[in-house]
Simulated assay, not measured.
Amino acid sequence: MAQWMTGTVVENKRWHDDLFSLRVEIPTPFSFTAGQFVRLGLPGTEKRIQRAYSLVNSPNEPLLDFLITTVPDGELSPRLDLLGVGDTLEVSAPPSGFFILSELPEGKTLWLISTGTGIGPYLSMLHTDEPWQRFEHVVLVHGVRYARDLCYQEQIQQWQQQYPNRFHYQPVVTRETVPNGLQQRIPVLIANGLLEKAVGVTLDTQAQVMICGNPAMIVDSKAALLEKGLDKNLRRKPGNVTVEQYWK
């Protein structure tokens, strides 16, 4: 059963009006594996209002970082949106989830495919040594509607400088044109080969692919990858494609 701790907001970073990152300090050391999530909660009229959010920060960092989209008619996100420095919220423990690198079979390339806030767990993973030790190439794909949604660019640029021949970042922006960006839906870009061409890395059976974000994108991307011979990764039947679905 989950335990709850009181966290204190140390920063509410605005990416734009509907997208923000909460950095939260908690009173005790917090251990988790990159890719896992916790629940954030605030008191409601009758019970705690809570939702699951992935941890974006490195497991070695003392502050917890959460990437959040404000859902206008949501119960929790508009209230989290209003939190400022010194405000408190509840954080569940222990962390949960198996969308982690240790669940992946071996491979030569690691593809981290996301839409929206689904990039969050990948940022946590990239802060660790594991992807760089296990894979020759790491590809981060982030699909969004507008360029303003392409968050954490400073950190991504640091990885590009640190691993110039191994780290490949590909923004996919569907509703406007951006430099070096692709504009079609991610499943289409997988199917027509333009995603592979853009990053210069092959999507073959030597790849391990993680997918996180919009459910429709996940379903269609899985189908496109299956056409290339990449099947779902299960513990009982190891494969190439591992998914995390934020909502259904």
Rank of each mutant, 00 (worst) to 15 (best):
T205E: 15
T33L: 14
V71Q: 11
Q161A: 15
A216T: 13
Y163T: 07
E196Q: 14
F37Y: 15
H168E: 01
L63N: 11
A34R: 09
M217Q: 04
S221E: 08
V91C: 09
L226C: 11
H16T: 01
D17A: 14
T115E: 09
G239T: 03
G181A: 09
E227I: 01
R145G: 04
T174E: 04
V172P: 05
L126R: 03
I113A: 07
R79D: 05
V219E: 15
D17R: 03
Q36I: 13
K108E: 15
L112H: 01
F98I: 14
V144Q: 02
F20P: 05
R175C: 10
A191R: 12
L82W: 10
E90S: 12
W132M: 11
R148D: 03
P164L: 08
T6V: 15
Q36R: 08
Y146H: 15
M5L: 15
H127L: 01
T205V: 12
G74Q: 11
P27R: 05
A216H: 10
G44F: 12
E25D: 15
Q3I: 11
Y146I: 06
P105G: 08
D17V: 02
R79L: 12
Y53G: 07
G229R: 07
I113W: 07
Q157G: 07
H127I: 04
Q153T: 01
G120E: 11
G193H: 01
L150G: 00
R185C: 07
P27M: 07
T205Y: 03
A191W: 03
Y122F: 13
I211C: 02
P238Q: 08
N233I: 07
I218V: 13
L104Y: 08
V199G: 05
D65S: 10
L63G: 07
G41I: 04
T174R: 09
T45V: 13
Y246E: 12
D81Q: 13
L76W: 10
T88P: 07
T45M: 12
D18Q: 11
F167R: 01
E130Q: 14
V178A: 06
V10P: 08
R145C: 03
L22G: 05
L203E: 05
E154L: 02
A2Y: 13
S21C: 12
Q153S: 12
P238S: 06
F30P: 02
L42N: 05
L40E: 08
G143R: 03
E154W: 03
T88E: 14
P187F: 05
T70A: 10
L126E: 06
L234D: 11
M1D: 14
V24R: 00
V85K: 15
L194G: 02
W4C: 04
P215A: 00
R79E: 13
V173R: 05
E176L: 02
A207N: 10
N240D: 08
P179C: 09
M210D: 02
L225R: 01
L89F: 06
R145S: 09
